Amino acid sequence: MTITFSIEQLDQVAKQILEKSPNKVLLFNGEMGAGKTTLIKKICENLGVNEPTSSPTFSLVNEYYTINNQYIYHFDCYRLKTEIEALDMGIDEYLYSGHWCFIEWAEKITNLIPEQHSVITIEVQSNGNRKLILE
């Protein structure tokens, strides 16, 4: 699936992503400032998270709970230096929990990603719009 959209259309884009039934381990690729965290926030809202969401840059993982009793784990691996650091925080337990796992900067932990995962790549266009590819 490929979509070009403006920031104002994020809610609609989040719904379209969920309608495609991606794997629950979902990697988000894109340069800094492309809108990965903002899109994850909209996906969380569409999954029924009522609490505030934010980037887990310093905590590495944020846990959210939906109104449908689901857990969502949001990872930001940007600060990780090695995959061992991810294992030390117990990332494998999260990734194989069966719950939603949204991962930014997954290229830092490529050997730990489950075989069954989906990838969202966001590119900033020259006009400020975003191009999203879901694989």
Rank of each mutant, 00 (worst) to 15 (best):
D76F: 07
G33M: 03
C44T: 05
I91D: 10
S55R: 03
G35N: 09
M32T: 00
V49W: 03
Y64N: 03
L60W: 10
L47N: 04
T66K: 08
K42W: 15
G33W: 08
C44D: 07
E31Y: 02
I84P: 14
Y71R: 15
G90E: 04
K36Q: 11
S54Q: 05
M89I: 10
I40V: 15
K42S: 14
G90P: 08
Y65V: 06
S55Q: 01
K42M: 12
H74S: 03
E93F: 00
P56R: 02
N69F: 04
N50M: 12
K41Y: 13
Q70L: 06
V61F: 01
A86F: 04
M89E: 01
L60G: 11
Y65N: 11
E63M: 09
L39Y: 12
E63F: 09
H74R: 03
K36P: 06
E85N: 06
Q70E: 13
Y78L: 04
T66V: 00
L60H: 13
S55K: 01
T82R: 08
K42D: 15
Q70D: 14
D92N: 11
H74T: 00
T57G: 03
I91S: 11
V49M: 04
K41L: 07
K42N: 15
T66A: 07
M32V: 01
N69K: 12
E45H: 10
L80C: 12
S59R: 08
G48R: 05
I84E: 15
N50E: 15
E51W: 12
Y71A: 12
N69L: 05
I91G: 10
R79Q: 15
D76H: 06
L87W: 01
P52R: 11
